[in-house]
Design a protein around this nucleic acid. Structure first.
Lengths: 236, 236
DNA sequence: TTACTGCAAACTGTCAACAGAATACAGTGC
DNA sequence: GCACTGTATTCTGTTGACAGTTTGCAGTAA
């Protein structure tokens, strides 16, 4: 019961709604550019329009939705240029984390990262994107976590969520995995050596490399994901 | 009249309110941790509570306000640790801008930055913080602008706004100006040489240097700003 | 005097309803 | 058949009101 009381105090209806709608958005429930009907959402969640509107305003501020006066809220549509811009921001945050971590990383953390590198290497050899993808996420997340700056971590995570809205991106070619993991090794090597500048540089270059891997093939084939929820992945 | 119509279409009541309230907050109208009464705000702006609530949700998402269930909205209180974290994020964004700019900067932009450096140098010699401060802002803003990434620029600006909430910081000592401008010169030199890594490194180090200039003296004297709206400045 | 209890006022959370704008569609003229 | 106009519908923007919670205060007992 104690736990339930605490739940009621910390999680208001609005905050629950917010989380719920965010999950819905990130799960691909709505198509890019699709309009969200406030009334429908209100009925769907069995609440009135007030809380729905508040949640939409918050998510719009976060960059997941778009507000058009007198027309309503729309799923944010992220074009190639906007995605490219987001990559630059993400690169800066990731580089910051790497640089901060370089001066304080512990041997245990290095070996944990090494372990991830090895497991990713296996996935590369098996040419298994399905195995590589979650390890890649964990690798990046670990660096952010080890950096020990919760605000930086939060900003990075939100940026990754925002990038998920960019669905018109190409699937990664097999060769990308090899390159990606080589870059990973370079980052860990710099971290292990305590070289802040090199770590920052490698981290930044890695994300930018992912950006070019992502946008270049997309220009050649932009129709592949229309009408489906093709599982696109993001190796950076 | 054309302009007025366009104004009505693009700026809804909520968006105007949002800007207004944000200005109020950043101007120091409310003390850190102070509670904002929804009804008072509604009366003050002659609107109902609905729009006020939506605006507050948006500004809370942005990090300027804090929401406590069943108790209301409060001015966000930023402690020293949080401010330190924000500096790291800011450093990453600024470094990203510097690195991106290094590969595309034009001679005209370099000379514009040089001009700012010279004018800051004058302010340093005159030991005039009042002259130095706006030039310093313009210097940083110019680099973000020249970098040509609007999203990065926006993220940086919002972070600076968020940092403004940290009022318990010390005024800058005179010596800081000299150091700060030396760091500025190092950034511009790297940019002019087209050295992306050096530019990124110098930019990151500069913001972190500003962070230590900010937090160290504050630890020695944390009571200086109580009860007043002392004009504190932020040299980084 | 101090601590506790109970009540009252104030405020937030939520809802339902109204006004105005945008959209879709039927009707009319060419 | 096609473009245009006027109307009806739908949806957003905003408001006022009610329910539940928190806060402040007066009253009481130790």
């Amino acid at each position: 019961m104690r736990a339930e009381l605490e739940f009621l105090q910390n999680h208001s209806l609005t905050s629950v709604l917010r989380r719920e709608l965010e999950t819905l958005i990130l799960s691909g429930e709505f198509a890019p550019g699709e309009r969200l009907n406030e009334n429908s959402l209100a009925i769907r969640f069995s609440v009135s329009r007030g809380p729905i509107r508040e949640v939409c305003r918050a998510l719009a501020e976060k960059g997941l939705l778009e507000l058009v006066p007198n027309r309503g809220v729309f799923m944010r549509r992220i074009g190639e240029e906007q995605a490219a811009e987001l990559y630059d921001v993400r690169a800066g945050l990731f580089a910051s984390a790497a640089r901060l971590l370089a001066t304080k990383v512990t041997p245990e953390q290095i070996s944990e990262l090494q372990s991830l590198l090895d497991r990713m290497e296996e996935a590369v050899l098996a040419n298994s994107l399905d195995n590589y993808y979650p390890l890649n996420l964990e690798f990046h997340d670990s660096i952010l976590r080890f950096a020990g700056n919760s605000r930086l971590h939060k900003a990075y995570s939100e940026l990754v969520k925002e990038l998920h809205l960019f669905r018109e991106r190409a699937l990664l070619q097999g060769g990308g995995l090899t390159v990606s993991n080589i870059e990973h090794r370079r980052i860990v090597a710099a971290l292990g050596a305590g070289d802040a500048t090199a770590a920052m540089d490698a981290a930044f270059a890695h994300v930018l490399s992912g950006k070019s891997r992502m946008t270049l093939p997309a220009a050649a084939d932009t129709e592949h994901s229309i009408g489906g929820t093709a599982k696109t992945t993001d190796i950076a």
